[in-house]
């Protein structure tokens, strides 16, 4: 259950997810006045953003897994 996206229609632009995320996954788009997922690959699945978002705007995916180990990258 990882972060997939911020649902734009629901986002109230309060930046709570940007401040809360310990993995620095979110950024704030100052033109749209909405948060968005910028570094989704770094989500570590604490779901603190979901807990804190006052608008229920964080959409999760079941697809996310931790990265497969590779020989270089």
């Amino acid at each position: 259950m990882a972060v997939k996206r911020v649902i734009e229609e629901k986002c109230v632009g309060c930046k709570t997810c940007v401040k809360s995320c310990p993995a620095d996954v979110f950024r704030y788009d100052s033109e749209k006045k909405k948060a968005y997922v910028k570094y989704g690959q770094d989500c570590q699945l604490c779901l603190w953003c979901v807990t804190e978002c006052p608008a229920g705007a964080i959409e999760l995916t079941k697809d996310k897994a931790f990265p497969v180990f590779t020989c270089w990258g």
Binding site: M1, L45, C46, L47, T51, L60, K64, A65
Partner: peptide, 21 residues
């Protein structure tokens, strides 16, 4: 079954969202 970060929760339980908490 990572991801399931909090071991007090049952495996496969939904995220730790408790309204008002």
């Amino acid at each position: 079954g990572m991801p399931d970060p909090v071991s007090q929760r049952d495996a496969g339980a939904p995220p730790p969202v408790v309204p008002g908490q």
